[in-house]
């Protein structure tokens, strides 16, 4: 294995983890409400920007990050409560347009609050890189991978072991029956938006030391997350993770072996291919459990 390949692999896995978390956000909201939430990228941005500005106020990262996550979750729940729930029963296209409107609004609010410039968060544990077989691995990449694994394990526990998680699965599986056993479906939608916002914020925060962040960082991250979810099969949790890693990897490889100017196009080439030739995605039908 050449050290260049290993290098691309590391960066693909790192960025792919963030796409995976964003893709999971898309799938969780889609399952609970059949809404494709194009404001998912803004959740990522808000998590990162809020952390930057809280640490700027002098808070230690250990306090700033959880506060930023909590704030993003509040934004997510508010979006569901004030923009999605009132439009219940509207057509999917209408709901999608609503989420696009929300993303524009959140982006504008972020620009008003934090300006248009780029911001960076210092790495969590220094920036002395490890050298692995000639390739450079940043400590922050390990933070990204580790956090993603912890979050995925947490989701597995939530959906597999808790009553609230099962109620969410039940609602996505059969909303009528869910109502008939006494599950408040509008509450599940709020919970799904809160959870998706949490995933986005966590991803945004651990990624901010590597990629920089800005008020409109959410557009691209959201679209890549959407590509990940569609590639894996919209509504399939394992698919979203797989899709995220593939998109991240494809991006890193094409940047490395072709040209970095093709990097952004890779995700969209993948999404076009998926939509044209395999609209159900990689795991869209095979999985019985839809997260």
């Amino acid at each position: 294995m050449s050290s260049a390949f290993l290098q691309y692999l590391f960066s693909g896995l790192t960025i792919g983890s963030i796409y995976a978390l964003a893709g999971l956000g898309f799938s969780i909201i889609y399952n609970a409400s059949r809404v494709i939430n194009f404001a998912q990228g803004e959740f990522i941005m808000i998590g990162a920007m809020a952390t930057v500005s809280l640490t700027g106020l002098g808070l230690p990262l250990l306090a700033a990050a959880p506060l930023a996550v909590a704030a993003t979750v509040l934004v997510g729940v508010a979006v569901a409560k004030f923009a999605i729930t009132p439009a219940r029963g509207a057509s999917p296209v209408t709901l999608i347009i609503i989420t696009i409107g929300i993303s524009v609004f959140l982006r504008g609010a972020a620009q008003a609050l934090w300006g248009k410039g780029f911001h960076v968060l210092p790495p969590f544990s220094g920036d002395a890189p490890f050298v692995v077989l000639g390739a450079v691995l940043l400590p922050q990449s390990l933070w990204v991978l580790g956090t993603t694994l912890v979050v995925i394990a947490g989701l597995g526990w939530f959906f597999g072991r808790t009553l609230h998680g099962k109620a969410m699965l039940a609602t996505s599986c059969n909303p009528l029956a869910a109502q008939l056993v006494g599950i408040r479906v509008s509450g599940v939608v709020l919970g799904a938006f809160g959870l998706a916002a949490l995933l986005g914020a966590v991803g945004g925060i651990v990624m901010a030391p590597i990629t920089f962040t800005s008020a409109d960082a959410g557009i691209m991250l959201g679209l890549k997350g959407f590509s990940a979810a569609v590639l894996g099969g919209l509504g399939n949790g394992a698919g979203a993770v797989l899709g995220g890693l593939i998109v991240g990897m494809a991006e890193a490889m094409s940047a490395g072996y072709l040209s970095s100017s093709y990097k952004e196009a890779t995700a969209f080439a993948i999404i076009l291919f998926v939509l044209l030739f395999m609209p159900q995605g990689l795991l869209g039908r095979a999985g019985t459990e839809r997260v």
């Binding site: 009553l163 099962k166 699965l169």
Partner: peptide
């Protein structure tokens, strides 16, 4: 309900658990 409407992708035990939600 008509047509049973079990939670098809969840286990039998989870269906019962959710009945007592």
């Amino acid at each position: 309900p008509e047509g049973r409407q079990v939670f098809a992708s969840l286990s039998v035990e989870d269906n019962l658990r959710l009945g007592a939600y």
